[in-house]
Amino acid sequence: MITVVSTMQLKSNSENEWDHLIRERFKSAHDKEGWISGQLLAPSHEPSTRVIIGTWRSRQDWEAWHKDPAFLASRTRLDELQSVDHQTALYDVIEDAQGTN
């Protein structure tokens, strides 16, 4: 299992549109082979920064999703709404402990 962490800076006043597009992208990932979970985060002290955390069964599953037409359809517009190219880091998951509240 891998977790992918992507961080990006958004252009001023683009947050709502960008968040909407990412929510749609998350919906398209739900049925993809290997999808486990995803989170969209905004640091409280940096309102134009976004962090996406996605967990996949394998790197191959994550890479295959990046070739999916639904993923590619929103890529150009998302890139236009960002002020800096995003940074992405992949991590192998050693332990996945989740609560049951």
Rank of each mutant, 00 (worst) to 15 (best):
M1G: 08
I2D: 03
I2T: 05
T3G: 03
V4H: 07
V4P: 06
V5Q: 09
S6E: 07
S6P: 05
T7M: 15
M8G: 02
Q9C: 09
Q9Y: 08
Q9F: 07
L10M: 13
K11C: 03
K11R: 15
K11F: 00
S12V: 09
S12M: 11
N13W: 11
N13A: 12
E15I: 03
E15C: 01
E17F: 04
W18E: 00
L21C: 02
L21I: 01
I22C: 04
I22D: 03
R23N: 14
E24K: 15
E24V: 06
R25N: 15
R25I: 10
F26K: 05
F26M: 09
K27M: 13
K27C: 09
K27E: 15
K27S: 13
S28D: 09
A29I: 02
A29H: 08
H30I: 02
H30Q: 14
H30K: 15
D31A: 04
D31E: 09
E33M: 05
W35A: 02
W35Q: 02
W35R: 02
W35D: 03
I36D: 00
I36G: 00
I36A: 00
S37A: 09
S37V: 01
S37R: 07
G38L: 00
Q39Y: 13
L40T: 02
L40E: 03
A42C: 12
A42D: 03
P43N: 06
S44T: 14
S44P: 14
E46N: 07
P47K: 10
P47M: 04
R50H: 14
R50F: 11
R50D: 12
R50C: 09
R50I: 11
V51Y: 02
I52E: 04
I53H: 09
T55S: 13
T55M: 11
R57H: 10
S58I: 04
Q60A: 13
W62H: 15
W62Y: 15
W62E: 12
E63L: 11
A64P: 12
H66T: 11
K67T: 09
D68Y: 08
D68W: 12
D68V: 01
D68C: 02
A70V: 05
A70R: 13
F71W: 15
L72Y: 00
A73K: 13
A73D: 12
A73N: 10
A73C: 06
R75D: 13
R75Y: 07
T76S: 11
R77V: 05
L78W: 00
L78I: 04
E80L: 06
E80S: 07
E80K: 05
L81A: 05
L81M: 11
Q82I: 00
S83K: 05
D85Q: 07
H86Q: 11
T88Y: 02
A89I: 09
A89R: 07
A89F: 00
Y91P: 07
Y91Q: 02
D92R: 13
V93T: 15
V93N: 11
E95Y: 08
D96R: 10
A97G: 02
A97V: 12
Q98L: 08
Q98T: 13
Q98D: 10
Q98R: 14
G99I: 11
G99P: 08
T100H: 10
T100M: 07
N101H: 13
